[in-house]
Write a protein that binds this DNA or RNA. Structure first.
Lengths: 112, 112
DNA sequence: GTCGACATGTGGATAGTCTACAGTTTCCTG
DNA sequence: CAGGAAACTGTAGACTATCCACATGTCGAC
């Protein structure tokens, strides 16, 4: 039991959030979390304890910005959206991820 | 700023070590580190402070075993080799890595 | 009015990397 | 043969990003 559960690959949450905002436009945190679970077909379960600290971190770095608004369900929420710096950062993160996977792939290709 | 330097993707060091030992047979820690840097074409720089704790961790989990020996350069070294459990674990780690990359890839495929 | 889903947050634990230091052995060079 | 470089093993402490568990508040439905 228990542990076929895949967790967010360490360090990729920023990437996933930025990409989600780029794809979907402004969203509130809860919605981002839902979207991430949905796209991953529930392979990833995203705790609140992960998403909000991450959003705060990204805001502090200037990659996303919040604007107050009202959700589809009429609740007051913070909408997060990509800044220009965030869009640039997304490119950086994608490149980093691709480098990382390429390196690991090179090991796995090696025949035993 | 400064760094385009790629670090070991968090959590993959075990995988890289196990795979290296599977591919190369018994090696000492220093050799494993060198091999990892070499295969990655120096994209990854593996600190001693990372490799030895990892080797100890893997030993404690029973995935690798040490035998004393002598290196090609005539120094007394510990040779590390895969145990049967380690070989099995390697399969687990590979599967986990592939799941993780597949999930992230699904996000990146999404057109902006 | 209260209950459940929506929504945002915080505190502490955990884990795996990093930097930086410390030490031994063998070979090479002057 | 002294001294240093390179091979080789290790430890301590910081840091970062995730996790789990808890706390708070809003709104619509019943």
């Amino acid at each position: 039991m228990a542990d076929d559960k895949t967790e967010i690959p360490y360090g990729t949450l920023d990437l996933l959030i930025l990409k989600t905002l780029e794809t979907m436009g402004p969203m509130h945190g809860y919605g981002v979390a839902r979207r991430i679970e949905q796209v991953s077909e529930n392979l990833l379960t995203l705790n609140q304890g992960s998403i909000y600290p991450a959003l705060i971190r990204l805001t502090q770095k200037g990659w996303i910005r919040t604007t107050p608004g009202v959700s589809e369900t009429k609740r007051k929420v913070k909408f997060y959206s990509l800044t220009r710096a965030g869009k640039k950062q997304l490119g950086v993160e994608i490149a980093r991820w691709e480098t990382a996977t390429a390196v690991v792939a090179r090991f796995l290709e090696t025949p035993s």
